[in-house]
Nucleic acid binder design. Structure first.
Lengths: 221, 221
DNA sequence: GCTTGAAGCTACCCGCGAGTAGATTACGGG
DNA sequence: CCCGTAATCTACTCGCGGGTAGCTTCAAGC
């Protein structure tokens, strides 16, 4: 106790902005590991290297904190994808670029991805709506690309009608592949993206050319 | 209070098996609505029309109860899909049948689906592993169908190598479409399944025939 | 160097919800 | 008709974790 002379490394006093970042980082980590309800403010504070009242002073209640996490990580993800996509590119290249950016982000930010994909939806209320809305916007963007492809090539009625469903399927496939990736890390993000393009784009292409798979019996419900 | 004569309709005494079913039904409902942690045993008991000690007497702790839900609903889902698929059928028909059975089940059992898909994974520990394992088995089954298609048609090296990834993507697409469906109920299960077949099967087909989509620039990482 | 306020802490309150003790019926078999 | 036992309830305990009161210390400015 009488070593007060030159207490050296122990986490000096830092400006508010820095602490807020540290706390948010810790919160994303803990929320992604345990989920919203099972995560405790005490653990978040500890991981952040700060005491609990700091968390409340800077970021507000647990709900506020979670909201801040969601919004920050959502923005980071959307920005990352947007940065990789140029709307002047051809539809297939847009999809390809978007997928690569997406997988790359997930690879570098597993916690962010887990919070957004798993936790945010299972917490009822405004968060789920917020994230769902963001996801819906993404699906619409993809749907627009699909429709653009169809109209560009002349055909499209059938495809347009189901474009949103197809887009939802594609987005879901990407998300799911991202989760699968967590258990099979020995694959590059580029390979993941090309798998999906092979699987899905050729499907789209055939659809656009009027090719349709039908079951061997007549009625379908 | 002095109406004790002929207390009539109030939930007669029922045999244990019946109560257990009621409690499990209620638990699935409540867990799917609020998530594992936010769900309270009191609410489950109330929804089941039973008092709390009953729940503990018959189904054990909250974790035990959740486990029972997961296992029951997982079995119901797998049985439903298995019932619709005949391994003598051609691969495309197997996929088609499986998808229809899957969507049909989800349509009839939204709560079951939500519990399995959303809640089970966000509760750490044995449940997540259990559900993940089940999901992984499903993916392998689908992958086997994909591989079968490839070898049957003579080609397949490239496709076989990535079969599991493609299967993961397909399973994810189906799951995601199921979630999307919750917000767009004005679509039949058969239509959903045919969308996916159109989207995915033709993709698989082209892959098998050696057709490959490639980006316009050389290296891909 | 001394003051002032931001940065930071320890130590507490309190409600909610998991889990239980023990009394209390109602029904089936004798 | 009555007894035993399975079905069921009311009413509690208790710990965990969200949230806070109020004190302490460092460092920048005069």
């Amino acid at each position: 106790m009488h070593e007060k002379t030159s207490r050296p490394q122990r986490a000096r006093r830092l400006p508010r902005a820095v602490r807020e970042r540290q706390i948010l980082d810790a919160a994303v980590e803990v929320f992604s590991a345990h989920g919203y309800h099972a995560a405790s403010m005490d653990e978040i504070a500890e991981v952040a290297g700060v005491s609990k009242p700091m968390v409340y002073t800077y970021l507000g209640s647990k709900e506020d904190l979670f909201g801040s996490c969601i919004r920050r990580e959502a923005k980071r993800l959307l920005d990352a994808v947007a940065a990789g996509v140029d709307t002047d590119m051809s539809p297939d290249m847009q999809l390809w670029s978007g997928l690569r950016s997406f997988f790359s982000f997930v690879g570098d930010n597993r916690s962010s991805w887990l919070v957004l994909h798993r936790q945010a939806l299972s917490v009822g209320g405004s968060f789920a709506e917020e994230v769902s809305a963001m996801r819906a916007r993404s699906i619409e963007l993809v749907a627009a690309v699909v429709v653009a492809t169809g109209t560009r090539q002349g055909i499209g009625e059938q495809a347009e009608k189901s474009a949103e469903g197809l887009a939802a399927a594609l987005v879901g496939a990407a998300e799911s592949l991202a989760v699968w990736w967590l258990d099979h890390p020995d694959v590059s993000d580029g390979l993941l993206a090309s798998w999906l393009m092979n699987l899905v784009w050729l499907g789209f292409g055939d659809l656009v050319q009027g090719e349709v798979w039908t079951p061997n019996f007549p009625a379908t419900t």
